[in-house]
């Protein structure tokens, strides 16, 4: 089914992801402008705002805080886009991914887990109380989202009886996993937001802590951190397509178009849905994650396991 892409596709992937991230950030900017200025305020004109901001940050002076550890912080920041793009390596475009190893699902999960180190290091580096608070907030967040997330991923892999992303897609030729694993799908979307520390899970970079882990970073460093966050969101949300939404499967249209449509729909849903929720603070959310989401995803896995046994 899926096989390895040519070299040009490998080189193209990061740029395609950056373009997708810019589009999603633009959509978010439009929705934000609509809330701030109303329909009469021509919110569509805010669409290029993320690019302008990016340019401003690129030309801005980086910033170092007194007696901080700039390199540690910088490593953390660089890890964000690195984790996003490397996780994107197993993201199929149509039926072809940059690579499709036997343990593709595990690889994706392993790369995402780099975010733990990334955000914490970015928060620790500047030697600033508020950014330290932001960094530690992400660790607490990880404790809440990671297990339901992993159980959701495993459930999809269980349904396909394979850890190869191409085979997970192939197993959904008839029926999408989202249809008969709705709980796993919903939990995956939640944890995709949490992993990208965006939306209702943006507490690690919360405005209440002056930007949290990002509070002290300026210039290129800030650009890489914030753009990397959008990349991470695109990749994690995009991975729900091969896992639960049948990948490139669909009638009439070619596989690549289905991938594009489904990814756009998921991201649109997440960006629009963000407006419905305030930021979830972990001291209140973690209990919900462990007492509702973990048993729920395990129950979902059990149901799928029984179905697999009776195949």
């Amino acid at each position: 089914m899926a096989d390895t892409a040519p070299l040009w596709a490998v080189v193209l992937l990061p740029f395609a992801l950056v373009a997708a991230a810019a589009v999603v950030a633009g959509l978010d900017a439009v929705l934000t402008a609509a809330a701030e200025r109303g329909r009469g305020g021509r919110p569509l004109r805010a669409a290029p705002a993320p690019l302008r901001t990016g340019l401003r940050l690129l030309g801005g002076q980086p910033r170092r805080t007194t007696a901080g550890d700039p390199w540690l912080g910088r490593i953390g920041i660089a890890l964000v886009p690195v984790a996003a793009v490397l996780a994107g390596a197993v993201l199929p475009w149509g039926f072809r991914a940059v690579t499709d190893p036997v343990v593709g699902v595990v690889w994706f999960n392993a790369m995402e887990a780099l975010a733990w180190a990334a955000v914490w290091l970015a928060g620790w580096g500047p030697n600033s109380a508020l950014s330290l608070i932001g960094g530690y907030r992400f660790l607490a967040q990880g404790l809440a989202y990671e297990l339901p997330h992993m159980f959701a991923i495993t459930t999809a892999a269980l349904g396909a009886e394979s850890l190869r992303v191409g085979e997970v897609v192939a197993a959904q030729r008839g029926l999408w996993f989202a249809v008969w694993m709705p709980a796993a799908f919903a939990v995956f979307l939640l944890s995709a937001l949490a992993m990208a520390f965006w939306g209702p899970f943006d507490h690690p970079l919360g405005r209440d802590a002056a930007g949290g882990a990002a509070a002290e970073h300026a210039g290129v460093d800030r650009l890489v951190l914030l753009a990397g966050r959008w990349l991470l969101l695109v990749v994690t949300a995009g991975f729900s397509v091969p896992l639960f939404l049948g990948g490139g499967h669909g009638p009439w249209l070619p596989a690549w178009a289905w991938t594009l449509l489904k990814t756009a729909a998921v991201l649109g849903l997440l960006v629009a849905g963000r407006r419905l929720l305030p930021t979830l603070r972990m001291e209140r959310y973690l209990e919900f994650a462990w007492t509702v989401l973990v048993p729920l995803t395990l129950l979902q896995a059990l149901v799928v396991a029984v179905v697999v046994l009776n195949r």
């Binding site: 080189v11 992937l13 490397l86 690579t99």
Partner: peptide, 20 residues
């Protein structure tokens, strides 16, 4: 062979960050 694109990808990202 499945892992060969990964170092290439890593190189592209690190190169991109350096270029930035």
């Amino acid at each position: 062979a499945a892992w060969e694109p990964v170092p290439v990808l890593l190189g592209v990202v690190i190169g991109g960050l350096a270029a930035l």
